[in-house]
Design a protein around this nucleic acid. Sequence first.
DNA 1: TATTTCACG
DNA 2: ACGTACGTGAAATAC
Length: 884
Amino acid sequence: MDKRLIIIDGNSIINRAFYALPDMSNSDGLKTNAIYGFTRMLFKIIDDYKPTHISVAFDMKAPTFRHKEFTDYKAGRKKMPDELGQQLEPLKELLDTFNIHRMEMAGYEADDLIGTVSKMGEDNDFKVYIVTGDKDAIQLASNKTTTLITKKGVGEVEEYNYDSVIERYEMTPTQFIDLKGLMGDKSDNIPGVPGIGEKTGIKLIKEFSSVENLIENTDKLKGSVKKKIEENKEQAVFSKKLATIIRDVPIEVSLDELSFGDYDKNAVIEEFKKFGFNTLIKQVLSMDGGSEESAVEEKINLNINHLDNVEEFKKELEKTNKLFIKIVKKVGNILDKNILYVFVSSNGSDIYYLNGEELELIKDIISNEEIKKIGYNLKDDYLALKPYNMEMNNIFFDIAIGEYLIDSKSSTSYECSDIAMKYLTKKIKSEEEILGKGAKAKKFQDLDMDELSTYFGEMINIVYNVYPIMEKAFKDMEMEYLFYDVEMSLVEVLGSMEYYGVAVDKNQLRELGDKFKNIIANLEEEIFLLAGEKFNINSPKQLGVILFEKLELPVIKKTKTGYSTNADVLEKLRDKHEIIDKITEYRQIVKLNSTYVEGLSNIINPISGRIHSSFNQTITTTGRISSTEPNLQNIPVKTEMGREIRKVFIADENSKLVDADYSQVELRVLAHMSGDEHMIEAFQNHIDIHSKTASQIFNVDVNEVNSTQRSEAKAINFGIVYGKTDFGLSQDLNIPVAKAKAYIESYFANYSRIKYFMDKVIEQAKEKGYVLTEFNRRRYIPEINSSNFMVRKQGERFAMNAPIQGSAADIIKIAMVNVYNRLKDEQLKSKLILQVHDELIVEAVEEEIDKVCKIVKEEMESAVNLQVHLDVDLNVGNSWYETK
DNA sequence: TATTTCACG
DNA sequence: ACGTACGTGAAATAC
C-alpha cells in the first residue's frame, strides 16, 4: 500500500492560526485560539490526505548555523507575543497525546528538519506533503513531494508540486533559492542584491538559471543591473546559502517512528475538554484510527419497558414530582393527533413508553400542576398533546433552552447529542445519524421500536443528567429569574400562539395575487422593451449584464461574484436610465407576490384555515424570538402597496385584533441602562425623543426643529444603538463624513452618559468576554479581542447592541408571559397570537375587547420598572392592516 | 448548497 | 489604514 508522509511546519502553522482566529480561552484563562486553529488544520489535512505518517517540526530558541554565519539573520523580527507563546507547550502535549511525532533540533530550523525528513520520505518511496505558511518551502516541491501552502488563514491550502511550480512561475522549485539569493528576504533579513526585486530577479533566473551561472556571465548584462550584480556577487552567493534548506541534518529518526493512527481517543478527548474544544470532540470520535475501546461511548444502561403499571409509576413520581418526558410524533398537521409514543421516566434510567392510543392513562400526570416536566424541546411535546385535549402543565426545565441561555452562540440547533458531549462527555447518536440527511432522510415513523427506544431513552437519560448541572450554572450566573420565570414560562405561551394561529382572508390574498401578477406582467414588458431583449429580471447576474454591459451604466458596487444590483445601487442609478425605476418597482412587487402572497397561500392550514407560524426560542444571539414557516415578523408595512398584505391577517368572527406596541422601547432601555439624565428627562416629560435629539445636535429649540432635522436625528438615535460610524451615517443621510462625524460627536457630548455606557460595555466585553442584559442574559463576544481591526470593531458593535436589543427582548418576553397568564387566569377567550419584537397582537372576542386592551397595556407597561416609563400604543381593528 | 436580495424590528 | 449598523427568514438563481 502506498505510504503518505505529512510534515508540518509547527511554528508556521501555529503562527497562522494565532493571527487568523479570534481570541479564545478556556475556563482557566489559557489562550487557545492558536491550538484550536492548528488542530482544525491538522484534522483537515488528515481528512484530505489520509497520511500514514506524520511529523511536526518546530524551531528551537537556540541560534542556528545561519545565525552563526550571519549575525543579522532574522534580525528585527518581533518577539512572539505571550498569548501565542503560552500555547506552544500545550500544543506539543496535545501532539504527544495524539502520538504524533514531533522534532526539533538545536542549531537547525524547522525548515531544515522538514527538508531532511522529506528527503528521507522521498528516498523510501513515500508520497510526501509539507504543510506550512512559508513559501520558502516551495523549493522542496518535487515529483514526490507536494508543498501545501496555507491560504488566507488556516482553512485552505494551495498545492505545489514540480509541474505546478513550473507552470506557475516558469522556474523549477530549486530555482526559487536562486531567486531569493538575488531578491533577498525582508522577513528573514536576508540581504540579496540591493536593487534587485522580484521582477528583475525572475527575469535573470529565467535567463541564467542559477546565481552561479549569472555571476560567471555578468558580461552579458548591461546598465545598472550589471553594476548591481557585479558589486554584490559574494552577497548573492551568501544569500542563496542562507535561503537554502538543508536536507541532510544529522537527525536520528526512522520513518517508522512517524507512523500515525495509534492513539487513545479518550485521552485526546480529555485534552480537548481541558481546552474547551467541544466541537472538535465530535470530530475525533468519527475519525479513523485511534483506539475506540476506551472511548467515551459507555453504553448507557437503561430499562425500557411498556408502561403496564401506571399506578406504580405514579407512586414513583410522587417521591420527586419530576417527570422526564419525550414525545415522538409522526410528521403531520399541527392540529392532528400525531403521537407515536410517549417516553416517560422518574429517575432517568427506568424508562416507560406508551403509544398514542394509551395517552389517557397519563393525562392526569401531564396536566398535574405539581409535577415538574423536564425535557428537551418541550414546546414540541406541549404541542403534540394539544390535539388530544391535554394540557401539559408545569413546564419546568428544558435543556435545549438551558443551553441557549448558557451560550446563545454555541450552536444553532442545540442538538441533544452535542449537549450530551459537552456536559457529560457521552456520545449518543445525533438525529442526523438516526434519520440520515438530505432528500432520503427517514422520519421517526419509519423507525422500529428498538431504534426509537434507544434514541429517546438515551435522550431522557441525558436530560436527567444534564439538568442539575445547568440548574447550578443558572444559580451561579444569577440567571434563575431569566431562565425559570421568563424563558421556561414562555414555552407554553409560544406553544399556545402557534397552536391557535392567526386567521386569514383567502379572498383578500387571491385579490392581491391577481393585482400583483398583473402589475408584474406589465412591468416585465416595459423592462424588456427598455432593455431591448428578454432576460430573467430576477437573476442579478443577467440583470447586471443588461445594466452594466449592454446599457453601460456606471458600476457602483461589486459583490464577490459580479455586479451588485441591490436597492442602494439602483437608487444611485435612477437618474441615468428610465429602466431603473421599473426594475425597482418590479423587484418590490415580485417580492410581495412570491414571498407573501404565494408564500402565505402555501402555508394556510387546511384544517383551521389559519396560519400557524413557529415561534422559535433558541435561535437569536440577543434573546429575541424568531418566527418561521412562515415568518410573521417581517410582514410588509413600510410601503402602502406592501402594507396591503396586512389586510390578509384578520380577526375571527365576532373578534377584533388588539395590537399593542411599545413606543421606542430600545431607546428607553438605553436611557435606563446608561442613566443619561437628558434622555431620561425627555422620556419622562413625554417629549418627542427625535425632536429632542435634533434640538440638541442642531442647537435649536425643541419646537423649532424642522422635519429634515428630526429625521436626521431619528437616524442618529437608531444608528447609535447599533454602533454606527460617521461613514455609515454620512451614506444614509447623504451628507459629508465630516458633518456626520460632527453630529455623532455632538450627540455624545449632549448624551454624555450614553458614551460612557458604550465604553463601559466594550470594556466589560474585553475583560469578561461577554456582555449582559438587564436580566443577566449573556452574549459572549470572542471577536472583541481579535487582532483583526475589522473583526474587533464588529465585536465592539455587538457589545454595544446586545444589551439593548437583548434587554428589550427580555422585557417583551416578560410582558408576554404576564399577558398570557392574565388572559388565562381571568378565563377570557381572547388569545395572544403574535409577537413582532416590540409588538403584541391579541385576537380579542368582541365582549372582551375593553378588558383585553386594559390587560395588555397594563402588563406591557409594568413588565419591568425602569428609570423611564414604558409607553404602549394600542390599536384595534378587524385586520392587521386596520390596526395602524 | 451558496449567494444575492429584500421584508421586518 | 483598515471598512464602515444590530438582529432575523424566505425566495430565487446559479453552481
